[in-house]
Write a protein that binds this DNA or RNA. Structure first.
Lengths: 207, 207
DNA sequence: AGTTTTAATGTTCATTTGAACATATTACTA
DNA sequence: TAGTAATATGTTCAAATGAACATTAAAACT
């Protein structure tokens, strides 16, 4: 798949990344291999990229990406409660983070993603349990049937977004809970894209 | 230890590193925070470095080094079906991977962890749906009440492990499905520790 | 009130770095 | 033997990037 020379260039890039924490510049690669010209390096990079062994951000410095960190890891802040503004939500107010690859949770490339710890069993018929971590994307354009985090009376709740004759309301997925029809406006804070449940550990003798 | 502002700059550097694989340039940090001058960024970097939260290669581009990732990322193979042996399970036979921090899924440090794509709705009363990704730990010592992946007649199924008068059987969490009492032995392949659900995306006019 | 720390601005400069172009050599292949 | 891929050279340019200096301002602390 790769020639010896190509492989040795890839090896060098990876070992530099590991040892120094940054990828080498084209000139550093050049001088390490004793090339008289950077163009050689450019050609190797292009080849490695074409063959899928290397990725990069074009026109940026030291922006090679080695397969060591191939999966795009998203760092998702977890909120217990989303403050009203949400525009002003900072990483500080998060109670923790989940880190996982973007693809597994449907996270889009651009949109802000955050997580909410579910409290109560109002969504149990949608199979969302107390303690579950619901991952949402920060968007306002909820569609009929989406499960959303929305702001009602200064509190954030997770409910199903339903429109009936053009008017939206929030539906609990539990007959014991009432539907919420907004007095004036319904502020959708995010649309559910994924869910993570930590199984309650059973008590074990050891471990 | 760090002021809010200092921490938010560090957060930004780290999240960029994780998301894009490269650390931001001073100008990128500048424009993200709306600074009118790079000098602000230079000062923050110097401070973070002095306090030991950041390391760097001076005079090199994008050469910030963020502290070692605190989160332990686990790379979990996803199986559609676990072959009988399980001892001989290789990464090759996996249909994909999820990468996420070990803490979010209860993954223990030693045990092998794998994921199973759920088919059917036999566990719906345990709120496990068709298509869900169930994360399991490779252990044989299931306890009464655990949800396990077990081998019955050469097929792997996800069921609740129940012992009655010392004899174990597999209970479906759906009245429409029968319980499975093993003819001879019950081979537990793993115990559920976590669950990931990708919410089915609703059709949108445009993404 | 005086001092220090933190935070920020505006500007300029030198270096680092990626990129491109035209060209050459070697080795393998059809 | 003509053709192609891999490998390499020399040079030039423009953009990206880190760094420095002189100031200002507010908050925090003594």
């Amino acid at each position: 798949m790769l020639t010896d020379r190509q492989k040795s260039i890839l090896d060098f890039i990876q070992s530099e990344q590991r040892e120094k924490g940054i990828t080498p510049s084209t000139r550093e690669i050049q001088s390490h291999f004793g090339f008289a010209s950077q163009t050689s390096v450019m050609q190797y990079i292009a080849t490695l990229q074409r063959k899928g062994f290397l990725d990069r951000h074009a026109r940026k410095a030291r922006a090679l990406i080695t397969p060591l960190q191939k999966v795009r890891i998203t760092d998702i802040p977890i909120y217990g409660q989303i403050p009203a503004g949400m525009a002003s939500v900072t990483e500080q107010s998060a109670e923790g983070h989940v880190s996982l690859d973007a693809e597994s949770v449907n996270a889009s490339r651009n949109g802000r993603t955050f997580a909410l710890r579910v409290r109560g069993d109002s969504m149990i018929d949608a199979h969302i349990l107390d303690g579950d971590l619901v991952i949402l994307e920060d968007r306002k354009d909820a569609q009929n049937g989406d499960i959303v985090a929305a702001l009602i009376d200064g509190e954030t709740t997770l409910k199903r977004y339903v429109t009936e004759r053009g008017r939206p309301y929030l539906k609990a997925e539990n007959p014991l809970y009432p539907n919420l029809t907004p007095a004036r406006e319904l502020r959708v804070q995010g649309v559910m894209i994924s869910l993570i449940r930590k199984q309650a550990a059973l008590r074990r003798k050891k471990n």
